[in-house]
Amino acid sequence: MSCFEIFNPATVFIFFACVIVSGIFTMNPVITVISLAGALAYWFVMPGQKNNRIHIYTVLMTLACMVFNPVFGHNGATVIVVINNHNVTVEAGLYGIFLGLMLSAAVYWFASFSKIMTSEKIIYILGFISQKAALVLTMALRFIPVYIRKAKQINNTQKALGLYKDETIVSRVRGGARVFSILLTYMIEKTIITSDSMAARGYSGRRRRNFSLYSFGRRDVIFLLASLVFTACTVYASSKGALVYNFYPYADTPSTAAVALAGYIGYGLLCLSPSVTEGGSRLKWRYLKSKISHSDIRLPTR
């Protein structure tokens, strides 16, 4: 289980929002590299089943950006070759790599985010913004599997009724349309039952009080405060212009001014915090486990 399970979903949501938004909007290669490193670190530390095909996608995406940006963008001073009167420049290539890495970092962060934020957590967060939207989402998640099952049943019935006269495409499309039409009638019919069931349990469109499985504790306060302070460093550096970086006409050397360093370090700590928390909790478990195995557990005797 991820250590993020013990945080309130709101904390998790705000953390990911800080990381992803500030990572994308600073447009600074150092920040991008830090973001990618942090995202990758957490991806590997995160427990549970992971789809490792994601690496293929990100590498391909970065390569594609590197190749296609110089093809379509012709800014930059260092020309490698001229094709059809168009300059292919080093800077455009660098910008492509930067873009690819930035997108890759976002992909990793989003992948971790979606693994941690299950549907109930999303609904919980959405409940703060709009109760109605949260309710609609949970109802949609409820009815999608029901209707898929129903569509299959209808299809089987129609098949056994001999309504698919032959195996041509036209016949199949007609069959599909028939299934859809029956499904629609069925849905409209059954929605009445659902709305009755809601009304019978006091639903009247008044304001509700959302039940929450989650508490907001000291841990959340600490993690949230830390995240906000680190983000503030980055935002401050960015507002002072220390993180401005130009690829064209010549690629800049990243700024090493004190303000810029503060920004890098703040963002670095922000990106590393999930891996550190996860690693820390693992060490703690190892320690607790060793204590359990060494302690002599005796059942109380009567």
Binding site: E120, T138, M139, L141, R142, V146, K190, I193, T194, S197
Partner: peptide, 8 residues
């Protein structure tokens, strides 16, 4: 099937 409203 239809008097249940939510997914969990």
């Amino acid at each position: 099937e239809h008097q249940i409203v939510t997914d969990k």
